[in-house]
Design a binder for these strands. Structure first.
Lengths: 109, 109
DNA sequence: ATAACATATCGTAATATTGCGATATAAAAC
DNA sequence: GTTTTATATCGCAATATTACGATATGTTAT
């Protein structure tokens, strides 16, 4: 085993969990925060600021890209990574609906 | 290696990633949705509805409980699991701040 | 062309996650 | 007290993730 049984869940549940998984790492949260702040972010900058090796950061960027959360365009020698607005909005919507469905009524515990 | 270097990130980044990781699984999303809908949820119900073994569901519930997202109180023979309102609000706040920090200005790609 | 720089990919080791059968625990019913 | 019912834990196998050194690739300067 060790393999998530995605076939027994809905597409929405699988999609949301995939997006959340991509964000659920402190390095990737830090990377996204840096991208959002600078709005023109290259990998090299991150290598200096986060305490991770270049290979590791490149790998995290790839995961964010694969999930569709960021997009990269080649900008001369370096690569410019930005937030993918479509996916970001999708995440906000899906997550908002999910988190908002709990109204805080504690009838129970 | 294979161990996340949490010491190089801020407490907020680590806390948010821990909460997200707990939610970032389709089974756990499904479980939370069921808990929210029924507001009085026991493990046995879930075993029938999701296509996972009892041991697996119990493990997912434990992970949600360890992360502080749900809380369980013994209710006779079965256990009643509910959302932990404090953690849920914290997650909404942290995530709202994070997702909301991106304003969608594409100056770049 | 070649050197310098930026990023990606490969290979590998350590650790974590997922899933489940088997078994333990603990309360309620008989 | 034994059986039933509900949940938890153990142990294991399969797979995934995290991290990084080494190396490859590709782009700009010289």
């Amino acid at each position: 085993m060790g393999l998530t049984k995605s076939e027994i869940f809905t597409d929405e549940q699988n999609q949301l969990s995939t997006l959340l998984k991509a964000i659920a790492h402190p390095a990737r949260i830090a990377i996204l925060q840096r991208i959002i702040i600078s709005n023109t972010c290259i990998c090299g900058d991150l290598v200096g600021e986060l305490g991770l090796a270049q290979a590791t950061i490149s790998q995290h960027l790839k995961e964010l890209k694969t999930a569709g959360i960021i997009q990269g365009t080649i900008e001369g020698v370096s690569v410019c990574y930005c937030i993918n607005p479509t996916t970001w909005k999708l995440l906000e919507a899906q997550l908002g609906a999910f988190l908002g469905s709990y109204k805080g009524e504690t009838n129970c515990c």
